[in-house]
């Protein structure tokens, strides 16, 4: 939250209304993840089960194919790794993740 400047009472919409709708695009919510899903593109069969089951919207998709994972929003719940039928996603503790993963 530190990047937001706290506004005064008369600088925000009344009643807690969030204009434009609350969107995660403006908020990075992946900073409390303890395990990171690592996606192996070569093993992936593009069944999209991970995309369907992700409780957030952390699988980046285009032209009906997984492109990667949005780590700014992934909470590390591990559902994708659990659901993947070909074990193309593995969970790795954040401390053990190398730079390129």
């Amino acid at each position: 939250m530190a990047e937001f400047e706290l506004k005064k009472y008369d600088e925000i919409p009344i009643g807690g209304v969030i204009e434009g709708g609350a969107t995660p695009e403006l908020n990075k919510t992946g900073d409390w993840r303890s395990e990171r899903p690592i996606w192996d593109e070569d093993t992936c069969i593009q069944c999209l089960q991970c995309w369907v089951n992700c409780p957030d919207a952390s699988f980046e998709i285009s032209e009906e194919e997984i492109q990667g994972i949005d780590y700014e929003h992934c909470k590390g719940c591990g559902i994708c790794a659990e659901i993947c039928p070909v074990d193309a996603i593995s969970m790795k503790p954040e401390g053990e993740v190398s730079e390129d993963e």
Binding site: L6, G16, G20, G21
Partner: peptide, 29 residues
Amino acid sequence: ARYPLLDVENPTTQGPFDMPDYYFEHKLQ
């Protein structure tokens, strides 16, 4: 209405969760 939820051209989220950093300001309103 100022913020009609049904106005899809101007979407809003209403009744959100407030942390201590904004609850007080909403009460001041």
